[in-house]
Design a protein around this nucleic acid. Structure first.
Lengths: 199, 199, 199, 199
DNA sequence: CAATAAGCGAGACGGTACGTCTAGTCTTATA
DNA sequence: TATAAGACTAGACGTACCGTCTCGCTTATTG
């Protein structure tokens, strides 16, 4: 591996190599724990170059994870709530199930439980998709968009972190259908009737 | 701290002291990472006494966490789906928000991402409440009880692990209401057709 | 290599192995600088065991050097000043030229220029022989024993540290002869004349 | 600090600043080890400017030390061996005791134990004075000039590197007297008488 | 007078060693 | 004979320093 020196300017190729190495080791640690020395060695970089730019091993790992999350998924439905929601959830579930995806997301979530910086970064990179979903729901006049977002992503993270159940397409579709049921009731006359019945 | 020697029999007081020490350090690590030496010192115990009974640090931590989770919550509603679900979720949310609760649950979840034993134990102690909710839902003839369980616990864990939002009573009630909406649709003709198809 | 554990007591076998390893690496570094990791590896010891008992790499090296210096040389002459002095210097020179000796002595002297602890230890282990020589000289009624000691050891260290000249037996004998000349003159009239001239 | 650029010619002011900085840091390291970065910073110079002109840190330090040693001491006695020798040793001792002198000499000697280049340079700058002394002794017909040179410089370096004793004027005078005693005996009839007595 | 060449301050870089910390194992001494 | 005490091996962590490299600037020399 050869990399051009950039003199007194930060070497972005080295930065990228470090993040790539970290990502590769997180995705497939090969039995070994992810080590700074291992990252440095795989990136062909001195350890100090890592510590010059990141405050700790976890910061590097998070950055690597973030980098990976930047791949944006565009998902368009058919304009109905059910169609849009289904498209969104299917693509979200699929995104988490890409190769290495579970390892990445569960690692970052585990880090976030301990490291405040990790917590911030986790928030930051979840918020983008969360906002997208919220906007989608609001476009359709859903009454409790926030709680519905939490249910949707709740299922996703629950499977990732707690139950380990696969995030398959069928689940996404069924979840979309259920959430649509919640939403459909609100603006219609039926909903008002229902609410009346509930009180 | 003084503890009676029990000779050649396993000293259960020591066992309890160890779990208490671990629990205390997990609940409030005071900036320091939770260390075996710290647990041993706080429990007034030799390290070997810990390793005699638990295979690893994580096992001790998990045991301490489990101990805490054993406090069972009984929650009875008014017999309607909405009432029972609300009672269940309110008590679940409240349980997670007991002092030290967030720290416990997020710690055990973080451990589970790495340690297979932790994963098993996490499953084991989540499954009890999960089953309770499932039974509740089935008693009310809900169509997709599994997915609804995941939605409910998804919101709980999502707030614990990802967003950090508080698990307040109001959220529990609103969530119960939304989930009830999903379920209420079931007796429609489409639903019945659907159910028929499934059976 | 196998070494018995000694439980909660310091393992003296490990101590010895560490010192031996350090000594071996100092005597023949094989091109590589003497490293704590290398010492630990060669001794079959964790690094922490070194740092538990010595404050720094140099402390270990010095201790290893001291250990080596403890080999006492007994040197008896024929009872005349020349004979005793010759025996003493020949054995001292020979001692410094034992295998690894130059490396040992020059290393410790180099360390002493920087490290206060090294300075103390160097003093300590030179003082024994220095005192022996001083006693020898006083037994023969030499007038300036201290300055003669410094000349004798001066030549030894000068060759070790500055010129690199070998400390051969012939030089020791000639040096003894010269120093004897200094001493012999003392009671003579010429000396008294000389002293008078100096004042 | 401002220094004129000299364009594509070597900047001798920078050279001098580097040597001065090195000398100052050697003379008073202030607890810190002497570092290339520290030298560069104190000299207001980029590190590359140091490495462009010297092959290693030790080369810079030695150059700084040499620079300082270039101050030549002229020492003339009264033409007798005792007088000339006294003058020479007194001035040599005084030279070593100039401010910063001990730090300089002990540093260079320590370096010489490790670095071959340092060894060469140490030889080189000691040889000048050593030769001067040798010439002086030969002029007076001394029999073992080489060994006497070593005795004289041996005492000097021994005090510098090993014992730390001050190199005061009185010691120099007494050493000169002792060495004169050695020398006086050789060419005279008294010496022959003595030698006969010794055998 | 433009083009080129080299020295320079700055500081990032690869590499190596340091000294610290923790996990988990082992033995002694205590009660 | 189970326990506390704590030394032990192993190995990762984050820091320090060396010597190399390039950038962007400045000045002297060349065409």
């Amino acid at each position: 591996m050869h990399r051009e020196h950039t003199g007194r300017r930060r070497n972005d190729a080295a930065r990228q190599d470090i993040l790539d190495a970290a990502a590769a080791l997180i995705a497939d640690p090969g039995g070994q724990p992810v080590t700074v020395d291992a990252i440095a060695a795989r990136a062909g970089v001195g350890k100090q170059t890592i510590y010059r730019w990141w405050p700790s091993k976890y910061a590097v790992m998070l950055d690597a994870l973030l980098e990976r999350a930047r791949v944006d998924v565009v998902d368009e439905g058919d304009g109905t709530l059910l169609g849009d929601l289904t498209a969104f959830l299917v693509s979200s579930f699929a995104g988490a199930e890409r190769p290495g995806g579970r390892a990445f997301l569960s690692t970052v979530a585990a880090l976030a439980q301990t490291d405040p910086a990790a917590r911030d970064l986790l928030q930051q990179f979840t918020s983008r998709r969360r906002e997208a979903l919220r906007t989608l729901l609001q476009r359709h006049g859903v009454a409790e968009p926030d709680l519905m977002v939490e249910q949707a992503y709740g299922v996703l993270w629950y499977r990732l972190l707690v139950s380990g159940t696969p995030l398959d397409r069928d689940s996404a579709e069924r979840l979309a259908a259920l959430l649509t049921l919640q939403a459909d009731r609100r603006p219609s006359t039926v909903d008002q009737f229902d609410e009346g019945a509930r009180n």
